[in-house]
Simulated assay, not measured.
Amino acid sequence: MSRKLRIHSPAIHYFDMVRRCNSIREAARRLNVASSAVNRQILKLEDELGTPLFERLPGGLRLTAAGELFASHVTVVLQDAERLRSELDAMQGLRTGHVEIATVEGVTADLLPCVLKSMRERYPQVTFGVTLLGSQSIPDAVLDGGADLGLAFALPRSAELQQLSVGHFRLGAIVAPGHPLATRHEASLASCAEHGLILAKSELSIHHLLAPLLRRLRQPARPILESSSLELACQLAKRGLGVAFQTRIGIEADLANGELKHIPLSESGGVFSDLGLYVRNGRHLPVAVDAFARQLDEEIRLRERQEREDLAPQVGA
């Protein structure tokens, strides 16, 4: 486990934990200190800044407008301290560190395990944390300091986020090998709708990619199922209960062993879902985080290239 660098006032660390927990008591438990000590530091901060940082509500604490501004400052300060610690370790040849990743379900089946294995082999002292979220929630996790890196599909551009890497992957219909669509090289959404649709809920990027196509259908589509779980959608598709939608990322093993077929959507020459790696704009990455980001970039580019090669013979077929 990497050591923590404590070069700032305890009040900053206490404030950061309280804002995450929305509770002084829970923050004190996690910090392993007395609640009174945490409360004293928060009151001291509020006195020095001349304004309340939290609203005291019956259900817990909530940041005030001033608290939100101070939280942004604290996030930068603590992340910069982590970068300094990492660079000091690197100078000593220790190669330690910790990387927190907020990501989507699909990359945990194969892509992320491959990168984590490679990192573990090269830097055995580096530790990792992974939080699964819907794509729409990942920017907040990166911006509030809960994650060093965000890995997600089809995020809208934001001035607050820097895109470190991106891969373009075809969105396609997912069906069982014996399905009527399984022998096609491409399929329209209308043809998929004839066999029943298994759709993603709004917290997933696939929902937003398919929404314009669904609106163009002559007959409104009534999905068999809407789910926030890609794994559930794939399991239903395997059983022939309908047509699900996904990129090849996340179903690599099912495609390799022939349990699923991926048929790219044909609308507008193909529907692409961009898998991007994101960091808070302006942040200097700690050594371990930078090494992980570079390894992930290599893997994303490799898989993008493999997909292009696999699909090339099918163009115009």
Results as ranks from 00 to 15, higher is better:
residue 163 Q to Y: 12
residue 155 L to F: 06
residue 233 A to I: 08
residue 210 L to D: 01
residue 233 A to W: 04
residue 226 E to P: 05
residue 251 I to C: 06
residue 256 A to K: 13
residue 157 R to K: 10
residue 151 L to R: 12
residue 159 A to T: 13
residue 172 G to N: 08
residue 254 D to P: 08
residue 214 L to R: 03
residue 209 L to E: 01
residue 194 E to K: 07
residue 242 G to R: 00
residue 218 R to W: 13
residue 178 G to N: 08
residue 232 L to S: 13
residue 171 L to W: 04
residue 209 L to Y: 09
residue 240 G to V: 00
residue 241 L to Y: 12
residue 196 G to P: 07
residue 210 L to H: 05
residue 220 P to G: 04
residue 184 R to S: 04
residue 202 S to N: 12
residue 207 H to M: 02
residue 192 C to W: 02
residue 178 G to K: 02
residue 229 S to L: 10
residue 172 G to Q: 03
residue 180 P to Q: 04
residue 217 L to Y: 14
residue 174 I to R: 00
residue 157 R to M: 09
residue 249 I to D: 04
residue 191 S to W: 03
residue 217 L to Q: 14
residue 200 A to W: 12
residue 187 A to I: 00
residue 258 G to Q: 06
residue 165 S to A: 13
residue 196 G to C: 05
residue 233 A to V: 07
residue 157 R to H: 11
residue 207 H to D: 06
residue 163 Q to T: 15
residue 221 A to E: 00
residue 233 A to M: 14
residue 225 L to Q: 08
residue 235 Q to T: 07
residue 171 L to S: 09
residue 216 R to G: 12
residue 256 A to L: 07
residue 162 Q to C: 13
residue 219 Q to S: 15
residue 240 G to P: 00
residue 259 E to H: 11
residue 267 E to Q: 09
residue 179 H to P: 00
residue 165 S to Y: 01
residue 190 A to R: 11
residue 243 V to I: 03
residue 202 S to W: 05
residue 214 L to C: 12
residue 269 G to K: 09
residue 264 P to E: 06
residue 208 H to M: 06
residue 156 P to R: 07
residue 162 Q to V: 10
residue 169 F to W: 14
residue 215 R to I: 15
residue 154 A to D: 14
residue 253 A to L: 15
residue 241 L to N: 08
residue 271 V to P: 05
residue 265 L to D: 00
residue 160 E to Y: 09
residue 227 S to F: 06
residue 219 Q to L: 14
residue 256 A to V: 02
residue 172 G to K: 05
residue 202 S to D: 10
residue 203 E to H: 14
residue 210 L to M: 06
residue 216 R to N: 14
residue 222 R to M: 13
residue 250 G to V: 05
residue 178 G to M: 06
residue 204 L to G: 05
residue 248 R to G: 14
residue 201 K to D: 11
residue 171 L to C: 10
residue 217 L to M: 11
residue 216 R to Y: 15
